[in-house]
Amino acid sequence: MTNYFDIDDILAEDELVPATFREATNGVGLFDSTDDTNKVEPGSKVELPFWLAQELHLRQAVTVNVPPCFNKRTREEIDADAAHVDLRNRCPFFYELGYKIAPLVGDKTIGRVLLIAFRTRYKEVLIKAHTAAFEATAKFLSLLTEEEVKLYKAAQSSAIAFKKWRKGGPRFQKASVLGRKRKPIQ
């Protein structure tokens, strides 16, 4: 289980997933409804954030459908060359959402897609993190999901730490919180 206070988990659950209402629901002004009763008719197709869709799905009030980031086209692209698919644009929490949504929609193939994508991209991320010059990375970073960006940064900082350790140098540094805004020197 993830931590209740985990920021990334909260944001991942904010991703929209398509859902279809199976039951009528009263008194929710979710959507620009046509009358004042704010009623949602059964059969309406809507996009709900995952945190809401999941709970409603468990109570059989809505049916969750597979989100567009796991559609056929994306799968084909991942099969072709996973390392260069723009996953960030599709869903910045691609893996987390896939992991959470798979049991709900009962699609067994999602797990395989996630695994292939992650395995191929993981290698690429590490190679780039250790070799690429800083200027060249911006374009590459824009393809990565949040989790991959974290991996990339971790790899990069360990490479930097290794270099620093080899060269030696000052151990003490100013507390990093103080670094940003310097008071103007009069």
């Binding site: 009263n26 008194g27 809401l52 709970e55 009030a61």
Partner: peptide, 8 residues
Amino acid sequence: ADHFGALM
């Protein structure tokens, strides 16, 4: 319907 509204 009210039940689900309240739930939401």
